[in-house]
Each structure stands twice: as structure tokens, then as C-alpha cells.
Design a protein around this nucleic acid. Structure first.
Lengths: 152, 152
DNA sequence: ATCCTTGCAAAGCATTTGCAGTCAC
DNA sequence: GTGACTGCAAATGCTTTGCAAGGAT
């Protein structure tokens, strides 16, 4: 547990240094929380949880910290049409499944075949492709069981 | 030209009737504009363009019309983190390429192999999958040439 | 005649920003 | 000591909503 937290601090410090930014308690707490969860929280959810570690932190600072982490490549921002953006502390190559009823997001531990991606990239003339994003949509078991699928 | 416009009207009328909604000049103009462009416009862009056809139309009505079309399955809403949502009048199965510098969106006329998609769906236990969405990101030739890639 | 839709203006909500005080380096 | 960061509150920008007048069936 301690080694994990320490590892996270080291990662954050070096990422921040590279861009002339400073290590702060607030950024560290946001980073720690993001890494410890797989719930893809919204900024507000991060705010509520991080308060336990840093009582006086403001929502604006959480937004700024999240943006900083995304800028450093230590987190990813997921945006869907509904409500607020969600943040992902996992930086390895993976995709997501999203529930159309409750909005929850889960990780998908399977990739698209690299050759398949290349084929798609080749079809995008006029663009220099730097990345891609794939998302499955459907209904999670909980919502499906409650018949919420029909109402959305 | 006339036959296309007439076809669009018929499509819209029947789609609206199915859900007890009414055919109006405003909805028709929004639908016509969306079908005629491949620029994936924002609500505001639709508003500015549709004004030529329906001078007194309001932005709120454009939003409502777009939502109605999406509800009928006659358009799709594309949301990214930056600024406003974009709308797509094409309802056939296709994907998009988005420029990270200027935000423009283009159609991608190539699909992921069906078997590949099935494999991914199978890895999403706890979900009943109903669809998927793929998006390539990168820089369009214009932004790339102007060196805008670096600043974003 | 019914009840859906429009246009307007106001409200709502997520996110960003300006700035004075504070902190990291 | 310098310049970056925080917290607060106000501002912003996109989108939605309430409502009276108008329009489609």
C-alpha cells in the first residue's frame, strides 16, 4: 500500500517537472484517487472523495488538477453527451463499455486488432491519425434487469 | 433536386407520425439541411444556415428539432469534450475522424470487421451490447500544414 | 377543437476564469 | 524571492425550460 502511494508520487513528480509545473498536495490527492478507482468518476465525484484527504480543496482546483493530469498523459478524459465528463486514471491501451441507461462506464480488456486499426487509418486520407477510441454501448445487467433499457 | 426534397419530406412525415408528433416547416428545414451537408454541424451552425429557409426560426427550436430528429432515428448526435455537440444526418453505419486542432469531423467509409466486433462484445460480460462507436483522432491536412498540431 | 409546437426570455448546469493570497522550488 | 497554484466567486457557454401565442391535424 505504501509502496503504491510512493510510486504514484514519483510518477506524478517527474511528469510535472517535465513541463515546469509543481507538485502539490491537491494534485497528488486527485491523482491517487483516480488511480485507486476504476469507476471513471466525474469531476464532482473526484471532488467529493478527495475532500477526505484534502479538506479545503475546491471544485475549481479539482478541475484544474484533472486538466493538468490529462495534459501530462496521466489520465484521460471521457466525454459523452449526457451530463459531465468522466476521468480515467488508467493510461494503458484499453476501451470502454457504457450503459445507456445509468451512464456507468466499465473497462474493456480487449483490443482491436492492430492490423484492423491500420486498415481504418489508411481510409482516412487528408488526416494524420494519432489515435483512436472505441466504445461499446448497451445496458449493464442492473439496468437491464430493472427494465430501464426501454425508457432510454 | 425536387425529388430529393420530396423524399425527405415523406421520410420525415412518416417518422414523426409514428410517435404522434407533427410535421412543421422548422423541423423540415433542419432535416433538409442536415441531410444536404456532410460537415457535421453544431446546433448553432444549423441555426445560422436554416435561417435562410425559415427566417424567424429560433435557436431553441433548432435544438428541439434536432432532438426530435435524433429521437426518431433520423440523425445522430456526436459529442466530444470541446465546445458544442455536432449532428450527423447520415443514419447508415459509419464512423468518424476528428481533428484535434480545429474540431472538424469527417466521415470514415470503412468499418471494423464484424468478427472483431463480436470478439470485443464477448469480452463485455455484465452488459447487453447494442452498439459500438469508433472514432479516429488526429490532425486534418489544413491544421497539420499550419503547424497547429503542436499547440493542442 | 385539440393539443403539439414555436419563439422568447430566463434558468440550469458543467466548466472556466480573474484575482489576491499562499506555497513550492 | 519568484513564479506557479489555490480557493473563492463571478462569469461563460451550451443547452434546456416555462409559458403564452400560433399552428397542424
Amino acid at each position: 500500500m505504501r509502496s503504491t502511494a510512493f510510486g504514484a508520487e514519483t510518477i506524478l513528480r517527474s511528469a510535472l517537472e517535465k513541463s515546469g509545473q509543481r507538485y502539490t498536495e491537491q494534485r497528488a490527492a486527485v491523482f491517487r484517487y483516480l488511480r485507486a478507482t476504476d469507476s471513471h468518476p466525474t469531476a464532482d465525484e473526484v471532488f467529493l472523495n478527495v475532500r477526505d484527504d484534502v479538506p479545503g480543496i475546491s471544485l475549481a482546483t479539482v478541475y484544474k488538477s484533472l486538466e493538468t493530469l490529462v495534459g501530462c498523459g496521466l489520465a484521460a478524459k471521457l466525454t459523452y453527451g449526457d451530463g459531465s465528463a468522466r476521468y480515467d486514471g488508467r493510461t494503458d491501451d484499453h476501451h470502454h463499455v457504457r450503459c445507456l441507461a445509468c451512464g456507468s462506464v466499465s473497462d474493456l480488456h480487449s483490443h482491436v486488432d492492430a492490423e484492423e486499426v491500420h486498415r481504418l487509418e489508411a481510409s482516412a486520407s487528408n488526416f494524420r491519425i494519432t489515435g483512436y477510441r472505441l466504445e461499446l454501448t448497451g445496458y449493464c445487467d442492473t439496468c437491464d434487469a430493472h427494465g430501464l433499457a426501454r425508457t432510454h
